[in-house]
């Protein structure tokens, strides 16, 4: 349909002879547009962080949490980044197996992806708890508000991804890998890769640049 739209149709035929079948053929492009607007949402949050990220209001700063210790600990964050990267890899492996219609392997790879996601969330939770212990919460200052809102928004996406994985696994078990489920798997992997890219930007933009003197 889309391919015929761009080719010249000649003659006096005013109707198609074969009716196009539309169901699901726009899903991927629609989801892609959704991810682009989601990316803009993160861009806006980054812009707010760029603006307010230096407003510590006598409170904790990336290199000084008030006790002289740094607030940002790069090691756990780096581990998290590795977790995210690996999960993107396993997610892509899952996708490869979907393409091969190798359902069991695909679900195993997606399962590993989800477990890595869980690990990521745990690390994020630990970081937030540690920060709260030195009085660095989302209410403390504009810096921490704009920091946490990025982190939480990203975590919400990860949680959504986990829920999605569970639902998808159930659905593939129920219906097998039909057209609809395959589309969903494609969108899921697009979503997870989007999360991964966003995290890398968060890592560089928020953490690395935060501790650079």
């Amino acid at each position: 349909m889309a391919s015929t739209a761009h080719t010249e149709v000649k003659g006096d035929n005013f109707h198609v002879t074969e009716e196009p079948h539309h169901e699901g053929h726009s899903t991927v492009i629609g989801f892609w547009i959704f991810l682009m607007q989601d990316m803009l949402l993160f861009c806006g949050l980054f812009a707010i962080f760029a603006w307010l990220g230096g407003h510590y209001a006598n409170g904790p700063a990336p290199l000084d949490d008030g006790t002289g210790q740094p607030l940002f600990h790069l090691t756990p964050v780096a581990i998290n980044t590795v977790i995210m990267m690996v999960s993107a890899f396993t997610c892509s492996m899952g996708m490869v197996n979907i393409r091969k219609e190798n359902v069991g392997a695909a679900l195993r790879f997606f399962g590993i992806t989800a477990l890595l996601g869980l690990g990521f969330l745990f690390m994020q939770y630990r970081e937030a708890v540690n920060m709260a212990a030195v009085g660095a919460t989302i209410q403390t200052s504009a810096f921490l508000a704009s920091f946490f809102v990025i982190i939480f928004t990203h975590c919400l996406h990860v949680i959504a991804g986990l829920v999605w994985f569970v639902v998808l696994a159930v659905q593939i078990n129920l219906h097998g890998l039909d057209d609809a489920n395959e589309r969903r798997a494609v969108c899921f992997s697009m979503f997870w890769n989007f999360l991964d890219i966003t995290w890398v930007i968060v890592f560089v933009f928020v953490y690395l640049m935060g501790v650079l003197k």
Partner: peptide
């Protein structure tokens, strides 16, 4: 939070 308030940055 303190995104648009006058205090706390």
């Amino acid at each position: 939070t303190h995104f648009f308030t006058l205090d706390a940055g």
